[in-house]
C-alpha cells in the first residue's frame, strides 16, 4: 500500500483530501498534492488539546461521528490527541504531564467544548481547579483556538442559567477564537477547520461572529428546500398530513431565515438527514441568541414575527429558479 503520509494509506488519504476539498470548496488551493505535501512536511502529527468545561460531551460525540476520514484514522493517524478527558487512556499524573508537556512545547491546536461559569468558578472545577484557569493557562501557547458548539462559542444554553455560562472568547479576550457553533458542533465543521489550519497555518476567513464563512456564509433559509412554500405561505400545521409533509415549518417555530449555517446543503451524519428534513424546525443553534432569546422553540414568537415582518416588507427575496 502506498503511504502518502506516515500511517495513512493513499486510499485513506484521498478520502481525507476529499473531505477537506469539499469542506473548503477551494479546489485549486486544496489539491491532493498540496494537502499531502503540507501534511507530510509536518515532521510529526500536530498536537491537539481538547478541553471540556460546562459541556454535555455532545460535541465530542459528534466529532466521533465523522465517517470519512474514520474516527480511528483521525485520532491515531491525523492528529496527536494529547489530552481529551473522554477519549484518552491516561488520567491522573500521566494525563496532566501530557498536558503540561504539550503546553511547554507550544504550537498545538486547542479545542474548547462547553461554556465557562461566569457566576462562580465553583460551578465548574476540574481536578480541584477552576476550569477558567485551566483554559487561560492552556490558551497562552496555543497556535489556534477553536470553540466547538454553541456553549463554547456563545454561551449556548448555560448562558441563561443561574451559572451564567460564558463563551471562551470572554475568558480569552486577547485571542482570536474560531467559533464553530451549532448544538452539537457539526462533525464536518471540526474536521475541516482543523485540516484547514494544518494546511494553511492560519484560520479560515471568518464572519463578524468569528465563524468560518465556508460553513456559515449563507442562511439556512437561502438553501432550504421548503423555501418555495415559505414564499407561498404554505406552513405545516399537522405532521400527520402527507400533503403538508414538505411545507415550511415557520408556524412550528422555524428560525431558518435568521440562522446562518450550511446545514441544508451539507446535512448531518454523512448527509443522511438534518433537522428540517426530519420535519423539525431550525432552532437557530448557530446564532449567539441560542437558546433564551429564541424561545419559544416550537411556536410563533418574537423571532418568527420578525421574519414575517421582513417578508411582508419584501426583505426576504423569493426563491429564483436559475
Amino acid at each position: 500500500m502506498v503511504k502518502v503520509f506516515d500511517g495513512l494509506s493513499r486510499r485513506d488519504f484521498l478520502k481525507l483530501c476529499g473531505t477537506v476539498g469539499a469542506t473548503v470548496g477551494l479546489a485549486d488551493l486544496f489539491t491532493v498534492e498540496k494537502v499531502a505535501a503540507a501534511l507530510k512536511s509536518a515532521a510529526k502529527k500536530p498536537p491537539v488539546i481538547w478541553l471540556e468545561g460546562q459541556d454535555c460531551a455532545g460535541c465530542t460525540i459528534s466529532f466521533l461521528t465523522v465517517e470519512d476520514p474514520t474516527p480511528a484514522s483521525l485520532i491515531l493517524d491525523t492528529i496527536s490527541l494529547r489530552y481529551h478527558e473522554s477519549v484518552m487512556a491516561a488520567a491522573g499524573h500521566v494525563a496532566e504531564k501530557a498536558l503540561d508537556d504539550t503546553i511547554k512545547e507550544g504550537g498545538y491546536v486547542l479545542i474548547v467544548e462547553g461554556s465557562i461559569p461566569d457566576a462562580d468558578d465553583r460551578f465548574c472545577m476540574v481536578g480541584g481547579r477552576p476550569f477558567r484557569e485551566i483554559l487561560q493557562e492552556t490558551a497562552r501557547k496555543a497556535k489556534a483556538i477553536i470553540a466547538v458548539g454553541a456553549c463554547a462559542a456563545y454561551g449556548g444554553i448555560p448562558r441563561g442559567t443561574p451559572t451564567k455560562g460564558m463563551p471562551a472568547s470572554k475568558v480569552l479576550p486577547d485571542k482570536t477564537i474560531i467559533n464553530l457553533p451549532t448544538c452539537p458542533v457539526h462533525m464536518d465543521h471540526v474536521v475541516g477547520t482543523i485540516i484547514y489550519f494544518l494546511v494553511t497555518k492560519k484560520a479560515p476567513p471568518l464572519d463578524k461572529l468569528n465563524r468560518p464563512l465556508m460553513y456559515f456564509g449563507m442562511s439556512v433559509h437561502e438553501n432550504c428546500r421548503r423555501r418555495a412554500h415559505f414564499d407561498e405561505e404554505r406552513f405545516l400545521t399537522d405532521w400527520n398530513d402527507p400533503a403538508q409533509k414538505d411545507w415550511c415549518l415557520l408556524e412550528k417555530g422555524c428560525k431558518g431565515p435568521e440562522t446562518y449555517s450550511d446545514c441544508p446543503i451539507r446535512r448531518w451524519n454523512s448527509g443522511i438527514n438534518f433537522c428540517i428534513d426530519a420535519g423539525a424546525p431550525c432552532q437557530g443553534c448557530s446564532e449567539p441568541e441560542f437558546y433564551v432569546e429564541q424561545s419559544p422553540l416550537y411556536a410563533m414568537g418574537a423571532v418568527t414575527d420578525r421574519i414575517l415582518a421582513k417578508k411582508a416588507a419584501g426583505l426576504i427575496p423569493k426563491k429564483e429558479i436559475v
Binding site: C56, F123, C124, T163, P184, V292, P296, L297
Partner: peptide, 26 residues
Amino acid sequence: MARGFEALLLGKDPRDASYVTSRFCG
C-alpha cells in the same frame, strides 16, 4: 460541575423542555 437547567426552564413554553433537556447529556 453544574449548569442549572431546571431554573432556566421556568416561565418558558413547556414544549421547549424536550429540546433543552436533551442537552443535559450528549
